[in-house]
Design a protein around this nucleic acid. Structure first.
Lengths: 202, 202, 202, 202
DNA sequence: CATGAATGAGTGTTCATTCAT
DNA sequence: TATGAATGAACACTCATTCAT
């Protein structure tokens, strides 16, 4: 019984390992060639596994992207929890989480399209949004921070939190495709300064 | 002679009509399905013309996009010239041109990818930039307005004009894919308020 | 009446002129890019005439090639007549006509495929041989020279004239695609020496 | 383990079988319609397999031709090695290898264009020479035989071996498209007689 | 007779997805 | 579960040919 269980455990572990290897390979390929230019065959070649194996773990390339986003979202959530215990200034929280996201995105630029899900390629995918995923974590988190800040009077209230939140997202998007020759983080940092100035109560 | 000329004129006119029908069909399809998801066959089916006809007028799908962009750029340039004669306040010019662009983009949402040229498909296009087009009018124009504003002390100078300009572009991008249920123009208007506040000298 | 006739003559002349302009353009294009790589549009662009006009004079690209061959065949025939009055040695005649052909082909390399008609591209052409043309002049001429030479005992008779003639044609073909770095004429001259030695009575 | 191996063997075998079926279909189509006139779709229809399957085995139509050529080149090389142990007379070697090639080509007429590589389609192929193949075996082999014969005084030396070698190739080319109603081998045999006479020391 | 816009069958090639092993 | 060969729809693009003007 125990042996059986252990065996199952081993299997599960092995399965998980394979899954992660595919995810890593995907990251590597997406980073090198971009999402659209990466074929599933590319990923599995990098992962050094059979092509068909892919479908034992994921249902499509979009699905992979989603799972990668979840990975990051988890990390994001942890930082969020931590920071909220350190300070109650929404301005500070916002600053920290934006910069945290900047570092996250800098290393996983390919997942940017998912922050704005509509911007995705999803050419051959039938449904417009793969099942099994609530709307982006990031968007929601920023939205909450801003709402809280507005309620506490830290941020101006004449513009809806949704709109402001969108603007923060745009900032990431734009920085990702920047032509200005500075690092992604620096780019975000400067824009963040402007935005925070813009939304602060005068 | 006159008859000849008229005849020629008829042909030319018909050709121009066909060209415009294709452009319109492209706009319609791009708007419905996005640029990448639209095939040339789609366009020509919508235009109710033969597939091959496309190539009598355009050399590729990118070419169409470019021509559409030029169309808008021209209009943009005219407004720019006009507004600069009305006022010398860069803040006002910026406001007006952003809103003008907003209206332009609202009707031609598909051309947004071109504002950030890097967002394009990029993979199969041979040359990195299709011939016959100087660097983006819009980007450049906003950059100039902001620079002028900085020089005249209207805008803060601790963040480079390039970065600010990028942020304006991002704003458009984000608004185009907004989930907030207001019009594109309103969306832009609100964000513009924030940005202008953000870049203004305190 | 006379005026009418003259007018007709003018027309005919004009027509002939157009026809020749197309032929010349074809020569130019075939020479530059080869037969298969040249499109009818290419030819008519070079000829600076409308695309449709082509079909008033020729029925297909193959047809043009054929007409060009006829042009050369005529020139060939004239030289043949001349040389036959100068000498009665078939060996000499053969030598002269081969070298004459060499010069002809050197300047019109594109028509080589027609010497071996089967080698042609004729991809989309329905019938395998366009109407209105007897089998190649050149082949026939060489055949006759060799036959005569065999009858007069100048050439060996244990190999049929057809076979020998074919070998001469092959020689041209091969020389046209030679990798040896000498002129087409020199190439032919050397091979001719070998062939004549080979077919001479010992 | 053994079972595993056998299983792998089965797969490999099946793959090899498929590969050969495609090659055979290609031979059949090339023979029927020529290389240029055969489309990949034609080949796969004849092979009764899906179109895409082609690209699991070959990268292009040229690639197929190349593989077919390699097949023959291998066979050619073996005969060459054998004959060189039987005799040291270059005249005999030349005769034997020409006749061997004749038999080879008779059964694979489509590969003739490759003997003169320049005769190929050439237009759309990216690199000028597909990778994975040293310069033509046949051409090189004949060249060597002739060179050796010249050095040993068997063949005349006033014409370069390259030129002579070219003439042999032309002979094949010509025989392939012969109109004379004898077999390919007989055709070659007769021409060979002439050529050998032509290149022999008097 | 001249024109050139319109046409659509045809081409090579890619790739997500399936399925027998 | 892992595999990778098989698949065919989809794509961008070419070009000989037609036909209304």
């Amino acid at each position: 019984m125990v042996a059986e269980q252990e065996k199952m455990g081993r299997r599960e572990q092995k399965k998980l390992k394979a899954r992660n290897e595919i995810l890593d390979a995907a990251v590597s390929q997406f980073t090198q060639k971009g999402f659209l230019e990466t074929s599933i065959a590319d990923i599995m070649k990098e992962a050094d596994m059979g092509l068909g194996t892919f479908y034992n773990y994921f249902s499509s390339k979009e699905d992979v992207l989603l799972k990668l986003l979840n990975r990051s979202a988890e990390s994001f959530g942890q930082r969020m929890t931590a920071i909220m215990q350190e300070t109650s200034s929404n301005r500070e929280i916002l600053h920290e989480m934006v910069m945290f996201t900047a570092r996250l995105v800098a290393e996983n630029r390919y997942l940017l399209p998912l922050l704005f899900t509509e911007a995705m390629g999803h050419s051959r995918s039938k449904g417009s949004r793969p099942e099994g995923m609530d709307p982006p974590k990031f968007m929601g988190a920023f939205l909450n921070i801003i709402r809280n800040g507005q309620e506490k009077g830290e941020f101006r209230q004449d513009v809806s939190a949704e709109i402001i939140s969108e603007l923060f997202h745009s900032m990431f998007q734009g920085a990702a495709y920047s032509r200005v020759d500075i690092s992604f983080e620096e780019n975000i940092e400067m824009k963040l300064k402007l935005l925070i100035a813009g939304i602060s109560k005068d």
